[in-house]
Amino acid sequence: MASSSEDVIEIKPNTGWASLALSELWTYREVAFFLAWRDVKVRYKQTVFGFAWAVFQPLITMAIFSVIFGRVAKLPSDGVPYPLFVFAGLVPWLFFANCVNKASNSLVGGGAILKQVYFCRLAMPVSSIASSLLDFALAFGVLLVLMAYFGVVPTANIIWLPFLIVLAIFASLSVSLVLSALNVQFRDVKHAIPFVVQIWMYVTPVVYPMSVVDKPWLETLLALNPMAGVVEGFRWALLGVDTAPGPTIMISVAVTLTLTVVGVFYFRRMERNFADVV
């Protein structure tokens, strides 16, 4: 049994900023695991193509973008074939977009559970993000195939890739925490998210390289977007484009850390009322 009669639960009103008690998430790790496992199991149930959808989504987006931005608009691509260039950006970007979409609705969608049983509420957005990692892995596999097809060999910079993936996870988590908590009380969030995510993509160097931004102040401004560092970093680590996004990534890391701390505090503060308002 998990615990003994030494357990003591104190129930009292908390005012002001709650303590974080992140160890609680560890206590409830199995809930997070099972919720993520449920998401994965259920996502492609009763579909003909199943997990292939996780691959179609970035591939089709790549095809459309290659025609519109590569052929028609003739955007530069740092010397890499445009389809590969845009796909390498889409893989982390779509991970982020899917996380934000799903995690933001995780609390509202799981409202019935919130009202019936107590567990660490962080488990819900965290599990949404964990389940998105599977789609990310599949898309990443396709990216490797595309790289082989275009004959692009990764450089030694690839050792930075795990770090970039962790950065993408934390960027998704921080945004999702704030939006999911906000969504509980204000369903406006649900309606706003599709637009926010779409606009967000265009301020992230997905379809264009950061190198086209010629004004340093604008580049710094764009780097405040944590996904800018991630997307640029992906291309640098995998495709060997020569622009090392050092400063951009430093800013992205700082912004992500700040956002994560703010997000966790905000979530913790709001969570005590989730069951009452969801």
């Binding site: 049994m1 998990a2 615990s3 003994s4 009669s5 357990d7 003591v8 639960i9 104190e10 129930i11 009292k12 009103p13 908390n14 799981g110 019935a112 559970i113 919130l114 009202k115 019936q116 049983v117 107590y118 005590r272 009322n273 069951a275 009452d276």
Partner: peptide, 25 residues
Amino acid sequence: RITEPTRGTATIHGRVGSLLEVGTG
């Protein structure tokens, strides 16, 4: 612990199981 009290306290010793609705989740 599904929701917090406005006032007052409660102390519980031991592992809690709550059966508020069947088939949750």
